[in-house]
């Protein structure tokens, strides 16, 4: 068995089309239109439940799980003073839907045991370590501009000129762990 495993590993290392990232899983975007694991944080944008013009920019850092939440107009979120607010909990929930619990746990360095932790398990594991709130102003500007950059992809026109480099990016049916 051992040699079989290592030959699979070897083949992966020698493959031009080795799958590194799993595609995002389908999820409803209305509540949390943007989630990403980037710049050492889980970060994203959560739509306000009461004001259609307002969104919250929320984030949790990998490692120390320091968190921040404020509106796109730089008002701090009232719920995120001592611990995770509902926006951050929603963000964790949607991140687990999009990437799978294991990938989120690995990225945030949450020790949630083996397998695929649920959003609730992840959140409570992070809160148990009593993370601190950090000022969200600069962070919010950066994350919001990444969200706008993400939305701008919808504005880019399709093209019928061939892109040969996409031969390196086959689809995959399995979630890459």
């Amino acid at each position: 068995m051992l040699s079989e495993v290592s030959s699979d590993e070897q083949r992966w290392g020698e493959s031009s089309t080795a799958r590194v990232l799993a595609p995002a899983r389908v999820r409803k975007l209305a509540k949390v239109p943007f989630v990403e694991l980037a710049d050492g944080r889980l970060q994203g944008v959560v739509s306000s439940g009461s004001d259609i013009e307002r969104v919250y920019v929320s984030s949790v850092a990998a490692g120390d799980h320091a968190f921040a939440c404020s509106t796109n107009n730089n008002r701090p979120c009232g719920g995120a003073r001592g611990s995770f607010c509902n926006h951050i909990l929603a963000l964790v929930g949607e991140a687990v839907l999009q990437y799978g619990g294991a990938r989120v746990a690995r990225y945030l360095k949450v020790d949630a045991g083996e397998g695929e932790p649920t959003a609730a398990q992840l959140s409570s594991a992070m809160r148990a370590a009593r993370p601190s709130a950090v000022p969200g102003k600069e962070l919010a500007a950066a994350v919001f501009s990444r969200f706008l950059r993400h939305l701008a992809y919808l504005e880019l026109a399709p093209s019928t000129a061939p892109l040969p480099e996409l031969h390196w990016f086959p689809p995959t049916r399995v979630a890459v762990a």
Binding site: P23, A24, R25, V26, R27, L29, F34, Q98, H150, L151, Y153, L154, L156, A157, P158, S159, T160, A161, P162, L163, L166
Partner: peptide
């Protein structure tokens, strides 16, 4: 022959 059509997309547009 091949005919291609390609588009950039947000990562949440899948399937």
């Amino acid at each position: 022959v091949r005919a291609s059509v390609a588009v950039p997309k947000p990562d949440t547009v899948v399937g």
